[in-house]
């Protein structure tokens, strides 16, 4: 599915995996976007946790998502803070995954001013310390 990119010019803060979201990080380490799904009502859960806020179920199973999505909202950050200051301008977006959830992320490998709501994007796995985080980049031709 998705390609793996080197860490771009953006800072890549390390996540701190916990017992609820560990399978997500095990997935990204292999370049796979794993999502939890409620075993009771089949709702795809975001952010990853072992609780379904739809039906209050507490059992989840993990499956591999497509890594494809559409930009739901985006902002180009011009005045950034701390270690992000030299990275500006950069794009923060909500990407609506094909599987339903809208996830916060960066859109990378793109001219920030060309990023538009409705644009199709795909997941890119970026090293963040010993882990990998999921950013997105426009689909070729999108």
């Amino acid at each position: 599915m998705s390609t793996t990119a080197e860490t771009g010019p953006l800072p890549a803060p390390e996540p701190d995996p916990n017992t609820e979201d560990a399978p997500f990080w095990a997935g990204t380490a292999e370049g796979r976007l794993m999502l939890p799904r409620c075993t009771r009502c089949a709702t795809v859960i975001w952010y990853p946790r072992q609780f379904c806020s739809e039906c209050s179920g507490q059992d989840v199973e993990w499956f591999e998502a497509s890594g494809r999505g559409t930009i739901y909202a985006r902002t180009v950050v011009h005045r950034a803070q701390g270690p992000w200051r030299p990275a500006a301008p950069y794009v923060i977006a909500y990407v609506e995954l094909e599987e339903g959830p809208r996830v916060l992320t960066n859109i990378i490998e793109v001219d920030p001013d060309t990023v538009q709501v409705g644009q199709e994007v795909r997941a890119v796995f970026v090293a963040a310390g010993p882990h990998k985080i999921v950013r997105f980049t426009p689909e070729a031709g999108a």
């Binding site: 890549a12 701190d16 975001w46 950034a80 916060l104 985080i133």
Partner: peptide, 17 residues
């Protein structure tokens, strides 16, 4: 773990979205 990696610049980033 799912919101702290994106360089959201204080409150303004979320409101901008």
């Amino acid at each position: 773990n799912f919101e702290g990696q994106w360089g959201i610049p204080g409150a303004v980033g979320g409101y901008a979205l």
